[in-house]
Write a protein that binds this DNA or RNA. Sequence first.
DNA 1: GGAATGACAGATATTGAAATCTGTCATCCG
DNA 2: CGGATGACAGATTTCAATATCTGTCATTCC
Lengths: 196, 196
Amino acid sequence: MPPTSQTLTAERILEATEEVLRRHGPAKATVVDVARALGVSHGSVYRHFRTKAALREAVTKRWLDRTSERLARIVTAGGSPEERLRAWLAALFEAKRHKAGDDPELFATYTVLTDENGTVVGEHIADLTGQLTRIIEAGTGSGAFMAPDPAAAARAVFHATGRFHDPGYAREWQRPGVQEEFEAVVDLLLRGLTSP
Amino acid sequence: MPPTSQTLTAERILEATEEVLRRHGPAKATVVDVARALGVSHGSVYRHFRTKAALREAVTKRWLDRTSERLARIVTAGGSPEERLRAWLAALFEAKRHKAGDDPELFATYTVLTDENGTVVGEHIADLTGQLTRIIEAGTGSGAFMAPDPAAAARAVFHATGRFHDPGYAREWQRPGVQEEFEAVVDLLLRGLTSP
DNA sequence: GGAATGACAGATATTGAAATCTGTCATCCG
DNA sequence: CGGATGACAGATTTCAATATCTGTCATTCC
């Protein structure tokens, strides 16, 4: 572990914390470990983050924001609102499923982090349902969807697809037939949204 | 604790086990406790249940079956398929929400039990989706619903309403606005099921 | 002077020895 | 004889002593 004698920034601390979490897991990752990885005293870490909880919260936010950004690109992409809604939901599911499948330990680590940071998760969900709202609004504008309250419809769609993005269901995502289950739910929801 | 000198049956053991679980919680409920509550030696309990796990599984099954039975009555009740589908989903949500709200500790106990008995839970879910299937079949028969594969539609409806019956979401059920969320999802699903 | 340090007190986690529990079975009892 | 018992071995849990960590702050360093 080279001391990397750059100036100590919040950003560098966050990177080191992610690495320590990856290595040691959420239960054994300590502030002392983070400081050691950076070659500084743990007191210095506390100059940038008031508590260990604040540090973990910041890491959680960074991680969730990376997902949000990727999905946001679909909102403004081309295609009909139906296509974009399907693509958005599929991308969310795909992203989660691959994270959970490719590196289960890391995924479990972030599941612990999200469990202990309800506020940040709440903001993330508000962000995601906001993206969904924009797609649905586009659909009501073009007459493709019938939704008197697009924001409420967005939340309903998000809740109804929880099984395909909520970490609590991660175990199910590796089973055969999930893809069909996912498509069945999405088909049903899209039929509900489509105006008669 | 009176020794209640009746003959020892599986049924009496299950009742005593429920009581011990209620009193001590899932972590501290032992087979010795159950035997003591019945005034017998713990060896006698093992005559009726091969392992502690089998005993807990049987308790779990009993508990889930009680819910199934109540819901089954709605399947064969009067009213249109739409009405019965709404009533069934509402009854499931209501039952769970009240169990979780009225006695959170007991609910947490049964959540632990269901977590450790995936097979029994799987059968319970198959039972419930079977009930849903029968309602949806009635709807396709009368022309009220359009569902090429009623069983698949039933599973989709069940998955889409997971937020309102999966114990993992119990915390959310006490928040204001859940009822509206629930109705929004059910409305969307029913619109999706209803033939154009 | 502003950032970094490390000693410190109280909180939390780890460890290993002792206690309890699970599951078996030879024996007992009606 | 068929069901109940309790002693037992190995597995698991509990508990208290020990070690580590969190968060603060007076002091050091550039």
